[in-house]
Computed example of a mutant assay.
Amino acid sequence: MCTGKCSRFIGASLYPLALTSIICNILLFFPGWDVQYAKDGHITEEVKYMGGLIGGGIMVLVPAIHIHLTGKQGCCANRCGMFLSIAFAAVGVAGALYSFAVAMSGLVNGPLCRVGLIWMTPFKDKENSYLHNQNTWFLCTSPDNVIQFNIALFSTLAAVGAVETILCSIQMINGLFGCLCGTCKSKETY
């Protein structure tokens, strides 16, 4: 595959992933589909780190735009553009890894929920993971279905972060080849 076509493919693939990451992070602010928990500050700590919004979202979306434009015809489809795409892809890798790490931390620690009358993270620092033991989920009485809510969204963020990391890493290699060898575009198209 041509380095320019590869850049266009990677850039176009990163757009929906970044959008998914942003949406998942925003939804995590509303456990139980209620705004009241966010108003009262009863939000899982990892949600406040905004790994999906900043890391997997903005820090991947900006490089995706440049990477996509690198594969287009014109001034960006040259060795300099491919060199810059390496730097932008590195920023994307950093953002995606941040999103992945925050999502995994959110999965491991579990949600903030009300246990009796106290708001706490009941599954944090436990030897046995709550993910494999659904019998302990009854501890969280509020928000409704917060455990399933967090598992679904943090798992999605982790998966998206992993795919973004892979795609941006591939673009770093592709950018290196494009920088050293040039793009496959003929000179007539310029």
Rank of each mutant, 00 (worst) to 15 (best):
C2M: 07
C2Q: 10
C2Y: 01
G4W: 00
F9D: 02
F9N: 08
A12F: 13
L14I: 05
L19M: 13
T20Q: 09
S21H: 05
I22T: 09
I22W: 03
I22Y: 02
I23M: 11
I26M: 11
L27Y: 07
L28K: 08
G32T: 08
A38S: 12
A38L: 14
K39M: 14
K39C: 05
D40F: 04
H42P: 00
H42D: 06
H42A: 08
I43W: 07
I43S: 10
I43Q: 07
T44W: 03
E46N: 10
M50F: 12
M50H: 15
G51M: 04
G52S: 05
I54Q: 03
G57A: 08
M59S: 06
M59A: 15
V60G: 01
V60T: 15
L61E: 02
A64N: 08
H66R: 00
H66I: 12
H66E: 02
L69H: 12
G71L: 05
K72H: 13
K72M: 13
G74C: 09
C75N: 10
C76L: 15
A77N: 15
A77P: 00
A77L: 03
A77E: 11
N78K: 11
N78A: 06
C80W: 12
G81A: 07
G81Y: 07
M82W: 01
M82K: 04
M82G: 02
F83E: 03
I86D: 01
I86P: 02
I86H: 01
A89D: 03
A90T: 14
V93E: 01
G95L: 11
G95I: 09
G95F: 09
A96E: 04
L97D: 01
Y98R: 03
Y98N: 10
F100N: 09
S105H: 14
L107D: 10
L107I: 12
V108M: 12
C113E: 06
G116W: 11
T121A: 13
P122D: 08
K124D: 13
K124T: 06
E127V: 12
E127C: 00
S129N: 11
Y130A: 08
L131T: 06
H132G: 07
H132D: 14
N133W: 07
T136G: 00
W137F: 08
W137M: 06
F138G: 04
C140H: 09
D144V: 13
V146K: 06
F149K: 05
N150S: 13
A152R: 11
A152Y: 09
S155N: 10
L157M: 15
A158N: 08
A159H: 01
V160H: 02
G161C: 05
G161A: 06
E164A: 09
L167P: 07
C168L: 05
I170D: 02
I170T: 07
N174M: 03
N174D: 11
L176T: 14
F177N: 10
C179E: 00
C179W: 15
C179R: 00
G182I: 08
G182S: 08
G182H: 05
K187M: 12
Y190I: 10
